[in-house]
């Protein structure tokens, strides 16, 4: 498993430098954020609700002006070059927003018409393909008022898919979807990534990052506290030695004598940070001490535990 290292800024489709947003009243929503999204990556932008993800995304897309710092999308400065850059960027910002009195298709046509680079002759055909891709072909003519939240979410993704994009910026794309819909959107993201589109997706769901992302950044209280490839993050996680046994006391003492630190005992297990010894040495020592072993092994903590450790905050964890 080789993981590509972060690429130089020149090739990165999304870079921010010292990006800061201070709202009126002095609240700092985003504090000096330096993002660098590698080309072709699926970049998970992770953080608890209220950590500044959506504000950052709004600044990326030129919807709100940064108090300080800069944004480069596809190598050009935002918001200055937005009319040139944004046609090549598909966006979904803070939940789906549509004209409820229009059909899903009519909504797609309207937003496509707002892009002066979009060819009106192919507009209907492209809307049809986008609806097909998100599984809404049957509801194309239905008023959005009658759509479920999940259908609106998929329609919002269809807006981003109306054209071939080099970069997709998606804010919580699986929000409001049922498990089946969530799976479909994740597959869609992987498909698009397979085509070479760089995808920047915010989420407060760790499962999402574990399943689809190649890279991740973690926001907490407006600050970017970590940014790396998912593989690197995983590699850093020290595995924990877990022994399942009814002889908790003896097991704990034995492990301690072998230099295992951070020992924790639960009803059925003893676990701790394993030192450099080969794992079978621990097994042999436990057996020699007459510990009855029901289970034995190394367990890697999940990303969730790491991120909770990083942010000191809980995450909403899916499933």
């Amino acid at each position: 498993m080789t993981q590509t290292q972060q690429q130089p800024a020149a090739g990165s489709p999304l870079v921010t430098r010292g990006l800061t947003k201070r709202f009126r009243g002095g609240q700092v929503a985003v504090d000096s954020v330096d993002l660098e999204v590698p080309a072709g990556s699926v970049f998970g932008f992770l953080g608890p609700n209220g950590s500044g993800k959506t504000t950052t995304i709004r600044m990326l897309l030129g919807l709100i002006a940064p108090t300080a710092g800069e944004v480069q999308l596809l190598g050009e400065p935002m918001p200055k070059a937005q009319l040139r850059v944004l046609p090549r960027v598909g966006a979904l910002v803070e939940g789906p927003a549509f004209y409820p009195f229009w059909s899903g298709q009519a909504n797609l046509l309207r937003f496509d018409a707002a892009d002066s680079t979009a060819d009106p002759r192919t507009r209907k055909a492209r809307a049809g393909e986008a609806l097909e891709r998100v599984g809404l072909s049957n509801a194309a003519g239905k008023k959005v008022r009658a759509y479920s939240l999940g259908m609106r979410q998929r329609l919002a993704i269809a807006v981003a898919l109306m054209q071939r994009r080099e970069l997709l910026v998606l804010d919580e794309p699986t929000n409001g979807l049922d498990p089946q819909g969530t799976r479909e959107v994740r597959h869609l993201i992987q498909d698009l990534a397979g085509d070479g589109t760089t995808i920047f997706t915010s989420t407060h769901l760790l499962a999402e990052v574990e399943q689809v992302c190649t890279h991740a950044a973690v926001m907490s209280r407006g600050k970017l506290i970590r940014q790396s490839s998912v593989a690197e993050l995983r590699a850093e996680l020290r595995p924990r030695l877990v022994v399942r046994t009814p002889d908790l006391g003896i097991a704990a003492e034995t492990l301690k004598s072998l230099g295992v630190t951070d020992l924790k005992t639960t009803d059925e297990t003893v676990e701790g940070d394993a030192v450099e010894l080969p794992i079978e040495k621990f097994a042999a020592a436990l057996v020699a001490a007459d510990v009855r072993i029901h289970g034995f092994g190394l367990e890697r903590p999940s990303l969730e535990e790491t991120f909770v450790a990083l942010t000191g905050e809980g995450f909403d964890v899916a499933q």
């Binding site: 030129g62 919807l63 937005q82 960027v89 803070e94 927003a97 549509f98 937003f111 496509d112 892009d115």
Partner: peptide, 13 residues
């Protein structure tokens, strides 16, 4: 409606 966001990121200008 929130559609202003969609229009501006389209980008409508």
């Amino acid at each position: 409606l929130g559609t202003l966001r969609n229009l501006l990121t389209a980008p409508a200008g």
